[in-house]
Structures are given as structure tokens and as C-alpha cells.
Simulated scan of single mutants.
Amino acid sequence: MSTPAGDYLSSGPRFAEGEVIERIESFRRRRPRLLDDHVTLAHGAGGKAAAALVDAVFMEAFRNPALEQLGDGAVLTLPSGERLAMSTDSFVVQPRRFPGGSIGELAVHGTCNDLAMAGAVPTWISAAFVIEEGFPIAELKDIVADMAAAAAQAGVQIVTGDTKVVPRGAADGLFVTTAGTGVIPPERTLSAQSVRAGDKVLLSGSMGDHGMAVMLARGDLALEADIRSDTACLSPLVELLMAAAPSTRWLRDATRGGVGTVCNELAQSCGLGVVLVEQRLPVRPVVNGACELLGIDPLYVANEGKFVAVVAPEEAEAALAALRSHPLGADAAEVGEIVTEPAETVVLRTGFGGTRIVDMLVGDPLPRIC
């Protein structure tokens, strides 16, 4: 049974239920539009500005059925009937090495995770390097070694690549671009269109570790905290989930824009609402404290080893147990539910008994975190 919107919204202290619904309907109709004349850092943050850029520039030029799914990877069907997932990504994180990982590990993990979110088993990766003149060979070797180790652990091969060297000042040291492919098992279908009212929303672990680890590692802030990136290959965890909950509807790793933005993308894609429960959202105290000092909501902080899953209600308990059985999912939690109304909207039930709308990320509070 789906939960009526009134059950979630009537506790709000400021507006009557009908007025809240009317405000949500008005909010829902406001789609991101590209109003800028020049690209800004916000266009790379994964929030409203990024969505507007993709829609007005790239989707307008390249529109096709595979691209219109707007997933982190495309699902492609071969003439034989076999399905593949293909993904591409670029990595510009600064600093290149941070507590818990490096740009090399991130490049492999991020690519594998995009494929896993499409239901694929990652198999092959290509890697291209844009290197600034004067970049230390020793550091390059270390980063490539990190990539090799991460690929071996993930069970993928780096099978092709490219190298470009640009003059001093034309790039900030090193940028890495990857593409990956993987095979999707025949019986597996994941899509926002499969999501139904009453489905449960799971989060595979605590929010915000990667974004805050990178932010503090830059040394621009007078803060010190024991925060390590959560960068990891999520494919083994996805396979455990799919074995325990074969009717799983949808997956997405909560990278740029965090859990808040990912849930908004889900709501807009499936045409339903997402209700999150604030007290169930896992955040480590040290991460939450750092976010509070910086004035950043953990809901919007990037993760590189966590995903959001929508599962059938009858499989939620088994799915959660499977996630918690693996070290990468030890802090997994059921954090919300899919509802009929308010459609295409994310609502947070707060610890004080009220509710608030969770919009897509606006601006760019944490640039170059992946």
C-alpha cells in the first residue's frame, strides 16, 4: 500500500495540508532551464545547473532512445540479444591523493560502479590520460599502479587507452577519462519505470564520507577530522543484493549531488514521490559535524562507495540483510518509501515531526571531488 501524502505532510506546522500540496505542485512544475551564457563550476556539480546543461546542450544534439534514459551508463542490446552496459567518466579530483584513495582508484571504482548500477558485471575498461607538461613521472607511476590494483581487485581489465600531453598551464596536472563495458545477466532489468508506489528506498551505507574527505584534504579549511573516502567497487555488493532481492527495481550510486539529488532524479524519472525519513539516514558523527561547521547538508555531499536502491516491499528485509552481510554495506539502512503523491518530488520527514522538500543540488559547494 502506498502512503497518502497527507500522512507525511499534515504534521507540517506552517501550512494546511491542501496548501502544502498546492505549493508542492507549483514547485514540481519548475524544471531546470539553462539561463547561463557561460559554463560555470556549478554545471559540473551534478545538480540543477548540470541537469539544465545536459538537457539544453547535449541531449538536444545527441538525442536517442539509449541516451534518453539518462542513466550513469547506457544499456545496449546486441543483435544476438545479449545486453551490455557502457559508461564513460572523467576524473579531475583535487588533490589527486586523499585519505582513503587516489584519482587512480577513483577512476576504476567510479567506472565499475556506473556499470553495476545498470545491473551489469563490469568486465573491461579503457583509460585516457591528459597530462600537463612537467608532471612527475614517479607520481604518474603511482597513480597507474593504483588503477592496476583497483582493477585487479574489481576483476576488470584495462584493455585500451590514450595519452595526451598538453603545455604547462593547460591542465591542472592530470585528468583521467575512462570508459567501461559489462554484461547484464539475461533475467536482470533495472529502470525507473519499474518503480512502484509502496517500494522501499535503501541506502547502502553512511553519507558524505568521500566529499568531506576530499574537502578537508585540500587544506583550505582550518579543520582536522578522521574522515576517509569511501571509494570502492560496489559490484560485489550489488550481486549480493540481486541474489537476495531479484525484483530490485532501480539502483544509482550517490556521487555528485549526493543522495538528495539522486532521489530527485528518481522521482522525476518514475513520476512518483520519494519520502525520506531524516532519522534513518546514516551519517557518521564526524562527517555530520564537519558538514555542520561548513554549512553543508550531508544529503548533497558526494559518495564514491554508496548506492541508493529501490526494492519491492516484500524483499526489503532480505535485501537489507544481504547488504549488511558485506563490509561495504555494514551501515545499510531503509531510509524511505515511494509514494503516489506528491509526484516527482522528494520530501523529508524531519526529526521534529515536520516535513520539507528536498530539492536538487543548487550551486557547487564541493567542486572537483571526483
Rank of each mutant, 00 (worst) to 15 (best):
A5H: 15
G18K: 13
I21C: 12
E25S: 13
F27D: 01
R33E: 09
A50M: 13
V54W: 07
D55W: 00
V57Y: 13
F62A: 13
R63C: 07
G73K: 11
L76V: 14
P79T: 08
E82H: 10
V92D: 11
Q94W: 10
R96I: 05
R96Q: 10
A107E: 03
G110S: 14
C112M: 02
A118M: 15
I125A: 08
A128N: 09
A128H: 11
E139C: 02
E139G: 00
D142K: 07
D142N: 08
A145H: 06
A150T: 08
A152S: 12
T163I: 13
V166C: 00
A170K: 05
A171I: 02
F175Y: 12
T177I: 15
E187D: 15
K200F: 06
L203R: 03
S204W: 09
L237A: 13
E239F: 08
A244W: 07
T248Q: 03
A254N: 14
T255Q: 14
T261E: 00
N264P: 00
A267P: 02
V277N: 15
R280T: 04
R280P: 02
P282H: 08
P282L: 05
V283I: 14
G289Y: 04
A290L: 03
P298C: 08
E304L: 12
G305L: 02
K306I: 10
K306A: 04
V311F: 02
V311I: 08
A319D: 10
A319T: 13
A322N: 07
A330P: 02
A332Q: 04
P342S: 00
V347L: 09
G354P: 11
P367A: 01
I369N: 07
I369Y: 12
